[in-house]
Design a protein around this nucleic acid. Structure first.
Length: 833
DNA sequence: ATCCTCCCCTAC
DNA sequence: TAAGGTAGGGGAGGAT
């Protein structure tokens, strides 16, 4: 991506390449495995003689593994498609790409694994990824036995499911647009070609718009509108986007029973009550306003929707179309401003204040202009709402829909709000609404006069407070243009019916790979893995009403904070598997599984100077001070001090391990040897020495013939030095297995990394930071290690580079003077200076 | 008092 | 048949 971006066209604000965004993602995958060194493999068979594959997109097994399998079994692996390529292997390939791939058959990866399992080349036609189920897909000339990955027991399931999941698409597209807005804003240049068009709008006098103005823009029934672009004959009719084509399915006794049994259990699900054993339980992803008039809602089962609206027409999904239209939408808005908070693929907030300030437009002029432009470039209608904050803008959109615009003027807010139904407030969902009903509250007007304490008692302190504010049209949350990820997860609660523990483990492994790929994609690393399970409720029927749905479930989750930074999918799988064992759930009862990663860290150093330095190959000079210290054998290491570390200790009443002593002792031995080697004098920091356990300290003093009188303290250290050394009141156990380090330079480096060095008052920041640490009662050592870890942890532990980066900064006058420093990583590699 | 874990809720 | 994902806010209750 980065490389592509540098090539960008200066005139288009980066858009030319944004169009190629998804393209770029795919080619990156290719780069990844091209870089993988060819591994020498032992030939096992000749199953794939004459077969030459390329891999397109994510697969399971991965491209790398397929490459190895092909080599082992006499096949050929191409990185790019070639005239001699015989098959394309893919788990999910957007329809739009198929036409470009020509006549080479596209097969599922299980063709390869199954062939190997059975020891012979199977007929690939049974493994074709595409069948002629949709007009946009290529027609196939031969009969196809469509082997669909129905349940999670199938290795192709994950990709196939995500390829067809609307919710997955919505979630991932939303996240991608958030990230893209952030990236665009990070570019130094600002270029808004769209604004020129505004000059053509005749300016009027007296169209003062009080600042700030927030615009909320939302496509009207997005999926339907995209689908109707090519189906004009359905305009004005009740239309729904669903997987199913018909609202009735063939009668099936078992299913009728299952439906009835589930109905008994879920009387609150109104739409479920409207269905019977013959109704389709395919969900309506989006429905037209004509369908909504009959009471049809998004998320409803098609069977239920058809009961309300017998004329309803169904149209299939068009995932590529959604991507394309949302891209165009964002592109259009961003040609006017980058003050955008992406909400989802079809919705965003835009701070429009600046545009009004510059162009002297009325809200109506602007709305008419932008809505017309969006209509013309996407072929889809949208609605816009304007207000002084995001809440007002959003409620205005509600009134504007469909295909309209509304400005909620500051003077009208109070009266307007009183009429708003509580259900229309963002954040008020099913559960909250029920609670409020219990209090006899239905409109914002009711809430306006309710007491805060009552609301808080019912909804919790935070939600109570926000609700009261919302009811008055107040929204203090500013738009967030720079979104930072706090978690990455992958979850599937459909098609989970394991027949063996192996199947369950395999699926968990696929999920681990998936979630790892997503983490890597956003260039982050994690330190916490959570596993979420959906388990059939004890009294729920084994057969669910919805085909392969999760039915009525209990959900459980468990997490583990690792004492290392996760740097591969195998670690995720290992942790997830162990969490699964701890939850004691029978694989046969599972109905859903998910893995979530939290405690995320950015993969790259933030400081550009440090970054640049770290990329350099170290010179000989730079390598000298690195001292390797043998790993302590007594205990496992903990890279970042954790209050809970003592809890994780062996419970058998063992004494706390003495790793600290051992490694310190070792450390000084190595230090001495190293000094001899270099014929250099050894410097030992007084404060470090003071903190050593008595016996080691004595040893060090003896070893080095030090002239130190610990009883007579050395000159009073500067104020900030005092806090650098953990005091005796701090529990030593926090730092078991860790070494001391001089903190000031590190903290300065940290602070510098977030603000550019120029014009930063180091002393002031130091004070500020100290206060922060004291206020929050965080150990300075913990902060320092967090920093070190976050910045350098993934760089193959090149601590010497970290050190020299800091020295470098110091020499440039960018850091304060530093004293002796000791850096330690989780493997007890040390560098000292 | 504050943090952490395991939930629940909400939005698209 | 059908494709019930994902991220963030926040609260209860236990641990420290």
């Amino acid at each position: 991506m980065n490389r592509n971006r540098r090539r960008r066209n200066e005139d288009d604000n980066g858009w030319a390449e944004w169009g190629g965004y998804f393209e770029a993602k795919k080619s990156k995958l290719q780069e990844q495995f091209r870089e993988t060194a060819a591994t020498e493999v032992e030939k096992i068979s000749d199953i794939f003689k004459g077969v030459a594959i390329i891999v397109n997109g994510l697969t399971n097994p991965s491209a790398e593994e397929l490459k190895k399998l092909m080599a082992e079994h006499g096949g050929v692996f191409h990185i790019y498609q070639h005239s001699s390529t015989t098959h394309i292997v893919a788990s999910n390939l957007p329809n739009v790409k198929i036409s470009k791939l020509g006549s080479v058959p596209i097969v599922k990866p299980s063709w390869i694994t199954d062939s190997i399992t059975l020891g012979k080349l199977l007929d690939y036609r049974r493994y074709l990824l595409y069948t002629n189920q949709s007009t946009s897909q290529p027609k196939l000339d031969f009969p196809v036995v469509n082997r669909t990955a129905k349940t999670a027991s199938d290795p192709d399931f994950l990709g196939e499911f995500y390829n067809n999941s609307r919710l997955h698409l919505i979630a991932t597209l939303g996240a991608e647009f958030k990230q893209l807005v952030a990236e665009l804003r990070d570019r130094p240049e600002r270029h808004f070609p769209g604004r020129e068009k505004l000059l053509e709008i005749p300016t009027r006098l007296n169209c003062f718009v009080p600042a700030p103005v927030i615009m909320h823009i939302d496509m009207d029934c997005f999926f339907v509108s995209v689908g109707l672009r090519t189906r004009p004959e359905l305009r004005g009719q009740p239309v729904a986007v669903t997987h199913a084509r018909r609202a009735q399915i063939n009668a099936n006794k078992e299913r009728e029973e299952a439906v009835t049994m589930n109905l008994d259990r879920q009387p609150e699900m109104i739409e479920v009550q409207m269905i019977d054993g013959k109704s389709s339980m395919s969900e309506v992803a989006s429905c037209s306003y004509e369908a909504r008039k009959c009471g049809v809602k998004n998320g409803m089962f098609l069977g239920a929707a058809a009961k309300l609206c017998p004329d309803i027409k169904t149209i299939p999904y068009d995932f590529e179309g959604y991507k394309e239209v949302s891209m165009t939408l964002y592109k259009t808005i961003a040609s006017y401003t980058l003050d955008i908070e992406a909400v989802s693929c079809d919705e965003m907030y835009v701070d429009i204040t600046e545009i009004f300030r510059i162009f002297n437009l009325s809200v109506e002029d602007w709305a008419r202009h932008i809505r017309a432009e969006i209509m013309s470039v996407t072929g889809c209608p949208c609605s816009t709402g304007f207000g002084a904050n995001r809440l007002q803008a959003r409620l205005a959109t509600k009134k504007a829909k469909p295909a309209g615009s509304y400005y909620l003027r500051p003077d009208d807010v109070e009266a307007y709000m009183a009429e708003i139904a509580l259900a229309d407030l963002p954040g008020v969902g099913r559960a909250t609404l029920q609670k409020l009903k219990g209090l006899g509250l239905e409109t914002c007007g009711d809430v306006q006069v309710a007491s805060l304490s009552v609301l808080q008692r019912e909804l919790g302190s935070k939600a109570g407070e926000t609700l009261l504010e919302q009811a008055r049209g107040v929204d203090k949350k500013p738009l967030n243009f720079h979104h930072e990820r706090k978690s990455v997860s992958a979850e599937i609660n459909y098609g989970i019916r394991f027949k063996s523990l192996d199947e369950c483990h395999n699926f968990l492994e696929s999920l681990s790979n998936e979630v790892w790929n997503r983490l890597d994609e956003v260039k982050m690393r994690a330190r916490c893995v959570s596993l979420k399970l959906m388990v059939r409720a004890a009294d729920a029927p084994v057969e669910t009403a919805k085909f392969l749905g999760h039915g009525i479930c209990d959900s459980f989750s468990k997490s583990t904070t690792t004492n290392y930074v996760i740097t591969d999918p195998k670690s995720i799988y290992k942790e997830a598997k162990s969490l699964y064992e701890k939850l004691h759930v029978d694989f046969a009862e599972l109905r859903g599984m998910g893995i979530q990663l939290t405690k995320l860290e950015k993969i790259a150093p933030i400081n550009p100077t440090l970054n640049k330095f770290l990329q350099k190959t170290p010179t000989k000079r730079e390598q000298i001070p690195v001292v390797a210290v043998p790993k302590p054998t007594v205990t496992s290491s903990k890279p970042i001090p954790k209050e809970k570390s003592t809890r994780g200790r062996p419970k058998g009443g063992k004494k706390a391990p003495t790793s600290s002593k051992n490694s310190l002792s070792n450390f000084f031995k190595s230090k001495k040897e190293n000094a001899k080697l270099q014929h250099k004098q050894v410097e030992i920091d007084f404060e470090v020495l003071k903190e050593l356990p008595q016996d080691i300290r004595d040893e060090v003093i003896r070893e080095y013939n030090l002239d130190v009188d610990l009883a007579k303290p050395k000159p009073q250290p500067a104020a900030e030095d005092k806090i650098l050394v953990p005091t005796e009141t701090k529990k030593r156990s926090h730092f078991e297995g860790l070494q001391w380090c001089q903190l000031r330079p590190i903290l300065y480096a940290w602070m510098k990394s977030e603000k550019e060095p120029a014009n930063v008052d180091v002393e002031m920041l130091g004070e500020h930071f100290k206060q922060l640490a004291l206020d929050r009662q965080i150990d300075m050592l913990k902060i320092a290690f967090n920093f070190l870890h976050r910045t350098f942890g993934q760089l193959d532990c090149r601590w010497h580079r970290a050190y020299h980066a800091i020295v470098d900064l110091t020499q440039q006058g960018m850091l304060a003077r530093y004293g002796s420093m000791l850096f330690v990583n989780k493997d007890f590699d040390c560098c000292f200076c």
